[in-house]
């Protein structure tokens, strides 16, 4: 899906639809799909193993708009070229990708929207 970056955000949903926050939560805590908790922590008391390499996701929905969250997931390098956060929805600029993941984005458009919808519910 094409997307348009305006300032520090992508305003339009990648699918044209709002995401599903329940599915988004499942993706965020999954160690195989979203991988978010490898680096981030968040308001997930049942998740024993959370990361400390990146800021807590708590309050993400207060700090950022939907459009800002979307760009941070799609391609955080647009905001900080040296970010360690993977770009979840672009293919360029990566090398030596394992064959089973080649030419695939980490999440698909619908999954990005689900995660954006969930993160926006995390309010301080």
């Amino acid at each position: 899906m094409p997307f348009k970056v305006e300032g520090d955000a992508i305003q339009r949903s990648l699918t044209g639809q709002p995401g599903d926050p329940t599915e988004g939560r499942r993706i965020v805590i999954s160690r195989q799909t979203g991988l978010c908790l490898l680096c981030h922590s968040g308001p997930f008391p049942d998740e024993r193993f959370q990361g400390t390499l990146a800021p807590s996701l708590a309050g993400a929905g207060t700090r950022w708009t939907l459009g800002q969250l979307r760009l941070r997931l799609v391609d955080g390098r647009r905001l900080n070229p040296d970010t360690i956060m993977p770009s979840y929805y672009v293919l360029d600029g990566v090398v030596r990708v394992a064959p089973s993941f080649a030419a695939k984005t980490i999440l698909n458009a619908a999954q990005i929207e689900d995660v954006v919808a969930f993160l926006s519910t995390l309010r301080d």
Partner: peptide, 16 residues
């Protein structure tokens, strides 16, 4: 940096 997650050895083992 390498792989779909675009990480390097240094990101974890030097910096973090």
């Amino acid at each position: 940096r390498m792989g779909q997650l675009n990480l390097s050895c240094a990101i974890c083992h030097d910096d973090n």
